[in-house]
């Protein structure tokens, strides 16, 4: 049907793709800790030591946990298993609200307190008009 050269080239393509996918998969697998953009409170709890370098913690802002003071804002990040207290002074993004996703960048004081230098709001994949949201909440 097809010539020997065609078959060889086809074999070459399959082999190259297989090798590349495997290599990249293994590299990403071993780099998993660095590929993630943030860690969850549970992962922070599981840390063996507290490092001085900048990290990011992400999760949900616990309902009724935000307390605004004149220069400081305190809130709790939760992943519904563990929690971490965040202390931050500065401007928060518009989408930062209770019960929504957040990523805090900064330094760990200890396993329960996090000094944030930057707050990013993480929004979810749900898009709907306000009326639909209101209707959903009524249910």
């Amino acid at each position: 049907m097809y010539g020997r050269k065609v078959k060889l080239r086809f074999f070459f393509v399959i082999l190259t793709l297989l090798t590349l996918f495997l290599t990249v998969f293994l590299i990403l697998k071993s780099l998993e800790k660095n590929v993630v953009y943030f860690q969850s409170p549970s992962e922070i709890k599981a840390l063996s030591e507290i490092k001085k370098n900048k990290i990011r913690v992400g999760g949900m802002v616990k309902i009724n946990s935000i307390s605004m003071k004149t220069k400081e804002i305190n809130f709790i990040i939760t992943d519904f298993e563990n929690e971490i207290n965040v202390i931050y002074s500065g401007v928060v993004p518009n989408l930062f609200t209770e019960g929504k996703g957040v990523v805090a960048e900064g330094y760990l004081k200890d396993k329960n307190f996090f000094l944030a230098t930057k707050i990013l709001a993480k929004h979810d994949e749900n898009y709907m008009p306000p009326e639909v949201k209101a209707a959903l909440q009524e249910k």
Partner: peptide, 23 residues
């Protein structure tokens, strides 16, 4: 696969899409 700042896909072929039909 990973924790990202970017939200997951809203349009899914095999499961329910999480975007309202008007959008």
């Amino acid at each position: 696969w990973w924790n990202t700042l970017h939200q997951p896909a809203s349009i899914n072929i095999f499961s329910k899409s999480t975007i309202h039909i008007s959008m």
